[in-house]
Design a protein around this nucleic acid. Sequence first.
DNA 1: CGAATAGTGTCTCTCAGACAGTATGAA
DNA 2: TTCATACTGTCTGAGAGACACTATTCG
Lengths: 243, 243
Amino acid sequence: MTLNNNMNYKSEKEFLNQYDAKEFESPLVTVDLCIFTLIENDLKVLMVKRSSFPEKGKLALPGGFIDLNSDSSIEETALRKLLNKTGVKSPYLEQVSTIGNKSRDPRGWSVTTLYFALLPYVDVIGANEFGDEVKWLSMEDVAINSMAFDHKELIHLARKRLSNKVSYTDIGFHVLPQKFTLSQLQKAFEILMDHKLEKKSFRRRMMAADLVQELDEVSAERGRPAALYQAKSKQPYFFARSL
Amino acid sequence: MTLNNNMNYKSEKEFLNQYDAKEFESPLVTVDLCIFTLIENDLKVLMVKRSSFPEKGKLALPGGFIDLNSDSSIEETALRKLLNKTGVKSPYLEQVSTIGNKSRDPRGWSVTTLYFALLPYVDVIGANEFGDEVKWLSMEDVAINSMAFDHKELIHLARKRLSNKVSYTDIGFHVLPQKFTLSQLQKAFEILMDHKLEKKSFRRRMMAADLVQELDEVSAERGRPAALYQAKSKQPYFFARSL
DNA sequence: CGAATAGTGTCTCTCAGACAGTATGAA
DNA sequence: TTCATACTGTCTGAGAGACACTATTCG
């Protein structure tokens, strides 16, 4: 407490020269990611099997410590973790919340900033650079598996934010491939929101909001072929009334 | 890097016994508060004049380091800071965002979790326990004063979240005293949202949402006396359409 | 033709917006 | 009576919800 007792310094420069960042005890700081995608109309979260202590062997969210030398912001930490687990560079990424308390990590007082990401489906290699096993877990499996730290709660936090936000913005587009049909779009929104939608209203609103661009192609499955569209949105869009 | 290289440990317990939290370089971690109130129909933010380095003499948001011994969560840190600057124990408090990067604090890589609070007006004592000067600053003064660290940006972040959230929830009630008239309520919403509202619609919606309880008292100023109301809300309320 | 899926027409009901009109106090 | 502010009545238009209807493919 003596070194940083800065009443004695005459200038900011002098103070900073003497400053020792290690003097105050500080918590562990991590960034965790809840990466969502849709695989065959099923919502999935990316999970990692921990290969080292603590919580070795358990499922956990991708994430970890900030690298003070290479990361210049926590957002960058999040993007780095996401890139090396999925190979994706520019997903939809949003900060959910920061959870900090003394009981969530057995190593001591710990703070984590939770992000969620939304991606079109990508195949994950199965193992990342540390040899941890990486896989897409469905929400049903999230419910029944035990998880490291408070990660199950983190997933629920992110899931809630996701449902909510999908219902009044256009972020739902981010789980789809470049080209999609309006039925696929609606289905995606329904799953993300966990809420059925009326076909006519949905289409009316997408058109009114001018969010999609019709293409000269069709997608043929069973039944009448469906027109293909692509997302138009430049800016994130907010609906005046929720869906 | 040798001590925490945990491949060598046989059990979680053994690992934790050997774990040294100081081995990884970690960022500075703080909590900052943007405490809003309304004084005579003017939006104010609580500011502190820093009495010590760094940024000595500049205006800053109340906040500071987590006390790992006495705080059991970051929310508690926020409440503690709020209590000792304002004397208020249970305000409306919401986490806005966590900002972390290597340039925001001259001492080095720094992470802050920003909260905003909403209070009915309270007189602040003028100086808090560290002898820092504490005062309510109007938003116009926020614009023209220079501030410590990135605190001006933090205020703008919090201000934006506030406007937004007021427009689709009932949090605006928290800046009013226990008893208030509907005109006062509407005025408060208008200032917080920075957006005029239609009188009839506003009243219709408050009634429809069942958010207020009429009292048997009136408030007499100029003109016709107005009925006094009190807030009914038990749960936070979300409007289906924004105001 | 029927099954399956895409896409439209249109009625109804809710509710925000606008704004004029009425009520009740003080000077 | 005038003014200031509180409060209400009521018309209009936008748009969500419901749901039946038509369209286009495959077998």
